[in-house]
C-alpha cells in the first residue's frame, strides 16, 4: 500500500512538470493553431539556463529560475517573429515543418555549445520529509506546490489582466477578437513569451530531479502533445487534467509494467483515446 502512495506522490510531481509544459503548448495552439514541436527544446534551453545561472554565476535557485524565465520568454518571442509569424498565411503543414526545423536547430545548437554529456543540477532542497509515513524529498514537494502557484498566477493573469483577456479572447474567437480591435501580433508574441517562460519554470523545477542533456525535450514534448490531445487541443483546464492523468498513469503503471515500457504508457493511452474519441476527452470543438 505504501508503494502506491509513494508512486502517487511521484505521479503528482511528474504531472506538475508535464502540466507547466503542456499549458504553454496548449496556449500556443489556442492562439496560433500550430503544434509547436520545438516547445520541448525550449524546455531544454531553460534547463541549461537555470543550470548555468546556478553553477557558473552562483545565483540563488529561485533567482535563477526567474531570470531563465525572462530569457526564455525573449527566445520564445524571437522564435515567433522569425519562424512562425512569416508562415501565418501558408498551409498548416509548412508551419509544422518549420517547427521541426527549429527543434533540430535547438538540439544541435545545444550539443555544439554545451556538449552531449549528461549534467546534474545541484540539489537545493535535498532533505527528506516524512508525511504520514511516505518519504518524500523536499524537491518533489517544491515542484508540486510551485507548479500549483504558477498555475494560480497564470489563472489570475488570464482573468484579471488586459493582456491575459486578449489572449483568451483570441483563442475563443479569432475574428471576434479582431473586430474589437485586438492586435494579433501583440497577442501572438505575448503567448509565445508566456508559454516559453512556463517551460523554463518547469525545467528549473524539474532540473534537480532529472538529468540535463540536449535531447531531454524530445520525449517530453511528445508527452505534452499526448496531454493536450487528451484534454482537447487549446483547452487550458483540459491540459491541466490531462497532465495529472498522464503523470499518475505513468507512475502507477510503473508498478504494473516492467520499467522499460514506462514511456510506452503515454502513447498507448493516446492511441486508445483517439481511437475511441478522436476529439480528445474534454474537447470543446469539432476536430
Amino acid at each position: 500500500m505504501e508503494l502506491y502512495f509513494q508512486q502517487l506522490l511521484n505521479g503528482l510531481t511528474l504531472g506538475s512538470i508535464y502540466c507547466l509544459v503542456a499549458l504553454g503548448l496548449t496556449l500556443i495552439y489556442g492562439i496560433m493553431h500550430i503544434p509547436n514541436f520545438a516547445h520541448g527544446h525550449l524546455y531544454m534551453v531553460g534547463a541549461y539556463c537555470v543550470l548555468f545561472l546556478c553553477t557558473l554565476y552562483g545565483l540563488n535557485y529561485w533567482m535563477a529560475i526567474l531570470i531563465s524565465m525572462v530569457i526564455l520568454a525573449v527566445i520564445g518571442i524571437i522564435m515567433e517573429r522569425l519562424v512562425f509569424h512569416p508562415l501565418r498565411d501558408s498551409p498548416p503543414t509548412n508551419s509544422f515543418i518549420a517547427a521541426v526545423g527549429a527543434l533540430l536547430f535547438l538540439e544541435a545548437g545545444a550539443t555544439v555549445l554545451w556538449g552531449a554529456d549528461y549534467r546534474r543540477m545541484p540539489e537545493v532542497f535535498d532533505k527528506v520529509v516524512n508525511i504520514f509515513g511516505i518519504m518524500a524529498t523536499q524537491q518533489r514537494l517544491v515542484v508540486i506546490f510551485s507548479a500549483l502557484a504558477l498555475m494560480g498566477a497564470l489563472y489570475l493573469f488570464m482573468k484579471k489582466t488586459l493582456i491575459g483577456s486578449t489572449i483568451e479572447a483570441m483563442s475563443q474567437d479569432r475574428e471576434g477578437a479582431f473586430l474589437v480591435g485586438i492586435d494579433a501580433n501583440m497577442v501572438s508574441m505575448m503567448t509565445f513569451g508566456v508559454a516559453s517562460a512556463l517551460a523554463a519554470a518547469a525545467a528549473g523545477l524539474a532540473g534537480p530531479l532529472f538529468l540535463v542533456f540536449p535531447s531531454m525535450g524530445g520525449l517530453l514534448i511528445i508527452k505534452a502533445f499526448v496531454i493536450i490531445v487528451l484534454g482537447g487541443m487549446g483547452s487550458i483546464p483540459g491540459a491541466v487534467a490531462g497532465a495529472y492523468i498522464l503523470g499518475l498513469a505513468e507512475s502507477l503503471g510503473a508498478t504494473v509494467f516492467p520499467a522499460e515500457y514506462k514511456d510506452l504508457v503515454a502513447f498507448i493511452l493516446l492511441v486508445i483515446i483517439l481511437s475511441i474519441r478522436p476529439t480528445g476527452l474534454f474537447a470543446k470543438e469539432g476536430r
Binding site: 508562415l87 508551419s95 518549420a98 527549429a102 533540430l104 538540439e107 544541435a108
Partner: peptide
C-alpha cells in the same frame, strides 16, 4: 543540424 534546421525553415518560407 545547426545549419540544416534553419535551412529547413527557410526552404519552407
Amino acid at each position: 543540424y545547426v545549419v540544416f534546421g534553419p535551412f529547413l525553415i527557410l526552404v519552407v518560407m
